[in-house]
Design a protein around this nucleic acid. Sequence first.
DNA 1: CGTTATGTTGACATTAATCAAGCACGGTGG
DNA 2: CCACCGTGCTTGATTAATGTCAACATAACG
Lengths: 249, 249
Amino acid sequence: MSVHVLAMPDGRAIAMDSRTPSAADLCSLFSRQPLERFEPGEAIFWESDEATHVFEVADGMLRALRLLGDGRRIIVGFLGPGDLLGVSLKERYLYTVEAISPVQLRRFPRGRFEDEVARNSHLQEQLVSKLRDEMTAAQDQTVLLSRRSADEKLANFLLMMRQRGNSEHRSIIELPMTRLDIANYLGMTIETVSRTITKLANSGIIEGAGRRSIKILKMETLRLLAEGDESERWMPSLVRAVTHASVNA
Amino acid sequence: MSVHVLAMPDGRAIAMDSRTPSAADLCSLFSRQPLERFEPGEAIFWESDEATHVFEVADGMLRALRLLGDGRRIIVGFLGPGDLLGVSLKERYLYTVEAISPVQLRRFPRGRFEDEVARNSHLQEQLVSKLRDEMTAAQDQTVLLSRRSADEKLANFLLMMRQRGNSEHRSIIELPMTRLDIANYLGMTIETVSRTITKLANSGIIEGAGRRSIKILKMETLRLLAEGDESERWMPSLVRAVTHASVNA
DNA sequence: CGTTATGTTGACATTAATCAAGCACGGTGG
DNA sequence: CCACCGTGCTTGATTAATGTCAACATAACG
């Protein structure tokens, strides 16, 4: 039943390497599955549900979140095209995943997924590699959350989102998630997120382009901020005055 | 060359793994390697070093840390007996690991490790399982760092350390690491760590037993705190007065 | 076009960081 | 064996940052 994958006569399968896109890789497991659509706000699965499927994101952006007893919401990651959902879990999902933008994804039964992987050491290698990537991402979020100032966190977040933004417009960052999502990801409040964005905009580092996208004006300054350069050299004195004393227009 | 591991007739090998009974588990790879000793403060390897070995901790406690450009120190985890070092990495170590207490561990060449695992799907399964455990731990730290108050973070930290403390004395928590380690793990300062411990002690929830160990007096209250129960009901009024008004003795 | 979500801004309260001093324990050497 | 010293820890005073509460603005949606 799963042998067809191992015995797959598809020539592309052979050409496959661990890193380069290839036919007999994890992704190919999903390629025959039908696309499913989810609207913004819809959940794909919930934390502590029995883990019945793994998923591959084809399009759109999702959030992975955990809810604490007292209602606090913690976003543990954002997911986009090419990401797999559910590989890092054991018996139960350890977070809820919801669509942020309209999402398309493919589903694969977990049991069969495990079987396929167990049978094909090449796939196992890929799975291990994928898990290592996830580990790296989790580590990065840990480092991000440990950073002290709101400026620093947000600067890092923007640079991270820029990395994903595959478009040619590398200076335009699309932020499909809400301020609440950002806040819950960075471990701060929506007000602080909003104020920090305003502050960066006032100092000419970024420019808001509608609610859900931001343009980077001074990449180098943003990078300095992200690295923890808190010496407010980056803030022009005029702007500093405005910020502190409300001397508008 | 690696088959001997698979065919290892050593009875202990079977009994070795904590959960999944198996003849040739990951741990058995290490069992023939010599023990190496490290003194407190000694580094086993450094962040961004070429990843030449994987390690298994036999005894002692270690810290995994990353240094930021401006000198900030982030502890991304503590490691104890049974933990593996280096499985979650790719070409280079992504953090420095140093001994906290006197440590004993076994080393295995990374290349051979990869080979063995690639050859034996049972080992691969175990590796995947290990990586998933690590992912869960990383997630937990993310949640921990997202928690707002110092009280809550520390309460969670204490409960976490209690889990590890394998001794029968479940109410005594050994803390071999320094306050700086704890602070860098929880994303706060040593002063705040110190004050928070003092505060918990004053409210009768814990009791310091020497600098490096703590006794839990009110487990339930600690659990409430850890869950984010900030309603200071847990703080006796007398203690509250002392804390706020310095009414000593 | 009114209604609701989401986002921004302001005033204020609270928490934790910072700066600074002193304490306590462990190790060393007299 | 005890005094000294250094490191790690605690405590205090102050400051800076972020959270909180509340009002308002703006975009989104029917």
